[in-house]
Amino acid sequence: MSSSNASNERPAWVAHHFDTAGQQVSSAKLGMWLFLATEALMFSGLFLAYFLIRKLHPDMVLVASEELNKAYGGVNTVVLIFSSFTMALGVRAAQVGNQKSLERNLMITIACAFIFMGVKYIEYSAKIHHGLLPWNFFDMEKAAHHSAALASFEYTPMFFGIYFTMTGLHGLHVVIGIGVLTWILIRARRREFTPDNYVAVENVGLYWHIVDLVWIFLFPLLYLVK
């Protein structure tokens, strides 16, 4: 539209309001990084709340965090880190135009996300079974039956409140991740991505890495730290 020499080489996937493909790609990347900043800031609020609870009730947090299953948490950590790796391989495959590898890696990543949610389901079920829930649903009788030490603290439900809030919001991000990864997989199968035009894969990859990154902080803080 503007400069006549560029319009000849202009690929069809470049939107009307951009001058060049490079401008469109770099805009998309900058937009994604800004979005990731908002994600990090949003979770930072929850981390602050977590630290406040630790500061106000250190003894309670120590005992209550023993209730979280380190093995399940550890497995999920490995699963997510592995899925970040396959995601990175998928982006690389898109970059070099390896269609088969791109689809395979995306599928593995999605499968890992499902495994993560499955393990989370088992963990949540155990907590619900023992009545270890936030204030409104906390069952003192079941909790005392499960562990006398837990029941001896006045504010035990706070820990499970912040546990469910943090892991719940993170889990929601994993579910959204499954959605956008599936969308990218469908587009990949339609052969929409080329070595010039794969910024959507890259951006979803960035999103998936931050989901992973948040978990890498959540796991030690909730499950491991004494």
């Binding site: 709340a49 106000l56 936030p134 204030w135 006045e154 504010y155 439900p157 706070m158 409140g161 912040i162």
Partner: peptide
């Protein structure tokens, strides 16, 4: 759910 984070009565 009531986490109690903003409520002094709940800790």
């Amino acid at each position: 759910l009531s986490i109690g984070i903003f409520d002094p009565a709940l800790g």
